[in-house]
Amino acid sequence: MDEQALIPDSQQGDLNAFNRLVLAYQDLAFNIAYRMLGDEARAEECTQEAFFSAYRHLGSYRGGSFKAWVLRMVTNACYDELRRRKRRPVIPLEPLNDTDEEIESPAWLASSDPSPEEVVHLKELDTAIDHCLSTLLPDFRSVVILVDVQNMEYEEVSSILKSPLGTIKSRLARARQKMRDCLQGFEELLPSEYRHEQEGK
């Protein structure tokens, strides 16, 4: 794919050229949205919204990394969704037990720390990561997702989030520390290197 050729074509109204760019970035965009929101349906909506927004603002693209430009739309869409969610918090349904009966007073839902019951349910590392990411503030979450989950460079992340390099570094350090504290509750799911380290203490 010749990205540099597709961009001007898209700006001149070539929808096929734009759609080829969409196909190139949709998986990455969806993954970031999913990690930011922890919800597949919402992530799908935000990814779609981000590509709509990219198409709408193609005229304002002034060169530089197109990937960073598109991913900025994605993170902005996610921030908007998180703000909406904060304004209108969703009340979770009463969880069901093994016999499909509602569990009364599920106080553990309110806690950000994993309770023993929660740990049992969070059998996969993926779920544990989602849980711990959800405990971070959005600004910290986006940095750790882009650097550690998506393996991006500081400079690229700085360009996507429009934040100085120093801010990216400090947010990343604090986010990693928080993630460490949270993931200690899911020790058995973590890579063996981590377990050995904990056992050696």
């Binding site: 929808l15 759609n19 949709q26 998986d27 709509f52 520390q177 973590l190 890579p191 981590y194």
Partner: peptide
């Protein structure tokens, strides 16, 4: 922190559930 970084980099990648073409 190295273990956290490793764990995050091993998190499974998802493919987009559908095409987002216009």
């Amino acid at each position: 922190l190295r273990a956290v970084k490793l764990a995050l980099s091993q998190a499974p990648r998802r493919t987009a559930p559908r095409n987002f073409t216009l």
